[in-house]
């Protein structure tokens, strides 16, 4: 299977998988709270429905129209470059994890600019809060990834994963565990889940992420929520792959890639279930308590680097 095909497959996986993971999390939450909940395919149906609706646009119309595209393209690009199901993606020698990090950051910038473009109080509030948190998650993310890179001295995910698949015992190292713990906090913050942000809130004043995207509707909203789901799918898959790299296809052959896809889905679903259970059991933190959580993740990441360097 050629690298381009695998990349295209990963983009598709992340897009559909992201929507399904959102559904899975809603379902798990519902069950844990004693409700039946909507079917896991509900987000897919909603996006399909919104696509056919007209788009109401208030202020900053041209920016509002562009933001979903930027979000989709940057997230899709990151999903194409980074190895998830198999390491032989298109241009895998350039599968540097920093590219994925900064592509995701670009998506956040676009969302924040969209929030400010509307010229409303809520848009600005959401943009301000989201950017503050993004500035605080960035260090934990970069240092956490650097900790994973220490054994191979490479930020190239293809190199990293090849080594990890060949030496599965590395997963039990304290450095790996610390780094994954810090990245878990980062992923929760970046995807706007509890305890950092409540994705299902309807009270504007407590919103972080939702406040930025209040002004989107119809087709714009469909594309935007697809982008957000892709972001979630990408972050979850990336964390799952880095934490437990079993099953990642190291060759381009069809069968290993197929196994890789199935295992990736399973790992991401387990992670999503875990995060959903965390959501059920935790209340939203006060906004100015969140930096403490993120600082803790940052410290964990630094510890992971130090432990990794010392243990080597």
């Amino acid at each position: 299977m050629s690298g381009y095909l695998l990349s295209a497959l990963q983009v598709l996986l992340v897009a559909v998988g992201g929507l399904l993971l959102t559904g899975v999390m809603a379902k798990v939450r519902a069950r844990a709270e004693g409700r039946v909940g909507a079917p896991v395919t509900q987000p897919l149906r909603e996006v399909a429905k919104w696509l056919t609706r007209e788009s109401p646009r208030a202020g900053g119309a041209s920016v509002l129209a562009a933001v979903p595209y930027v979000l989709l393209v940057t997230t899709g690009l990151a999903a194409a470059v980074v190895p998830l199901a198999g390491v032989v993606t298109a241009g895998s020698s350039g599968a540097d994890v920093l590219i994925a990090v900064f592509l995701l950051l670009t998506g956040s910038l676009a969302l924040a600019l969209g929030g400010l473009a509307t010229g409303t109080a809520f848009g600005g509030m959401g943009a301000s809060r989201a950017m503050t948190l993004s500035a605080l998650t960035e260090p934990a993310l970069l240092v956490g990834l650097a900790a994973l890179a220490v054994p191979q001295r490479s930020m190239n995910l293809a190199t990293l994963l090849r080594h990890a698949v060949a030496h599965p015992t590395g997963m039990a190292s304290p450095s790996h565990v610390l780094a994954v713990a810090s990245l878990l906090v980062v992923v929760i913050a970046e995807t706007g889940r509890l305890p950092v942000d409540n994705p299902s809130t309807h009270l504007e004043l407590t919103m972080i992420h939702e406040a930025m995207v209040l002004e989107y509707g119809g087709r714009d909203w469909a594309l935007l929520s697809l982008g957000q789901a892709m972001r979630l799918g990408l972050l979850f898959s990336l964390l799952a792959t880095l934490a437990v790299p079993w099953g990642v296809a190291t060759s381009g052959a069809a069968l290993p890639v197929l196994v890789g896809v199935v295992l990736l889905g399973a790992k991401a679903a387990v992670l999503a279930t875990g995060v959903a259970l965390i959501e059920v059991r935790s209340a939203k933190l006060r906004l100015f308590r969140v930096p403490e959580l993120l600082a803790a993740a940052f410290v964990l990441a630094i510890l992971a680097v130090v432990v990794g360097v010392v243990a080597r």
Binding site: S7, L51, S55, A58, V73, G76, V81, T118, G119, F122
Partner: peptide, 29 residues
């Protein structure tokens, strides 16, 4: 990356064509 971005933009534009193209000017919330 640039080529991939161009390809993705094309893909998203194509996909979005399937949906509604009506845009309505409205007031902000």
């Amino acid at each position: 990356l640039a080529a991939g971005a161009v390809a993705l933009v094309g893909l998203v534009v194509l996909a979005a064509r399937g949906g509604s193209r009506v845009v309505r000017a409205t007031r902000a919330w």
